[in-house]
Nucleic acid binder design. Structure first.
Length: 207
DNA sequence: CCTGCGATATTCT
DNA sequence: GAATATCGCAGGC
């Protein structure tokens, strides 16, 4: 018989479930500096997380989970460590990490990463070819395209899915992380639940 | 450098 | 009908 081992799940090196089963605001802050990795058809791409936003459940008017579970937001009500992907503006997908415990309906939107591995593949996937590497992944829709994230990954588990995982990176000091209001929302727009690495503030312009 | 706007599909009122 | 957890391009400094 074949001696080929099963596809490795690479649990080693991943952030543990306990990292995600906390309040979205804590997870959003602490995700800054960790590494988002995809492995699609043998192509590996990765980036350092530099911008996040926290979305809570029934108490957060800006959250997809505000009105309780629906067909669309169902993955948000899974246990922390799962993936929530939604389609937005008729054209783009956004990638979220579910946080908290089952049924809380929390998630963290990944809004920006700094390209690390597979930059050539990122450029291929983006079609356009931005001058600077950072412009490949400095937006929630952009990083989804660059990393090859697809709707089929919606609801998957970051603990075990070989296609997408988050590995421990370098924890940033509080002085190196800035909290600001969330982007692109009209409800609860004043809450400072967006976190961004100070090093990522300069390159970013509009949006 | 900056601001404004159109694209385009699902969800909400 | 209106709104939307966006992006890239056009045009004016």
């Amino acid at each position: 018989m074949s001696s080929v081992p099963p596809i490795p799940t690479n649990i080693r090196g991943r952030l543990p479930r306990s990292f995600y089963t906390r309040d979205a605001r804590i997870v959003a802050r602490e995700l800054i500096g960790h590494i988002l990795i995809t492995e699609i058809d043998g192509v590996r791409t990765s980036g350092r997380i530099v911008e996040t936003e926290a979305y809570l459940g029934a108490e957060d008017h800006a959250s997809h989970a505000y009105r309780g579970p629906t067909n669309r937001n169902r993955p948000m009500f899974q246990a922390g460590g799962h993936v929530y992907i939604y389609f937005i503006y008729g054209m783009y997908y956004c990638f979220n990490v579910v946080t908290g415990t089952e049924d809380q309906g929390q998630a963290v939107l990944i809004r920006g990463v700094e390209p690390l591995e597979g930059i050539d593949a990122m450029r291929d996937r983006r079609g356009k070819t931005p001058r600077r590497d950072i412009d490949l992944t400095n937006g929630p829709g952009k990083l989804v395209m660059a990393l090859g994230i697809e709707a089929g990954m919606n609801g998957t588990d970051l603990m075990t899915d070989p296609r997408v995982r988050i590995k421990k990176g370098e924890m940033l000091a509080d002085d190196d992380v800035v909290a600001t209001p969330r982007i692109g929302i009209t409800k609860a727009a004043e809450l400072p639940w967006r976190w961004i690495a100070r090093s990522a503030l300069k390159p970013r312009r509009s949006t």
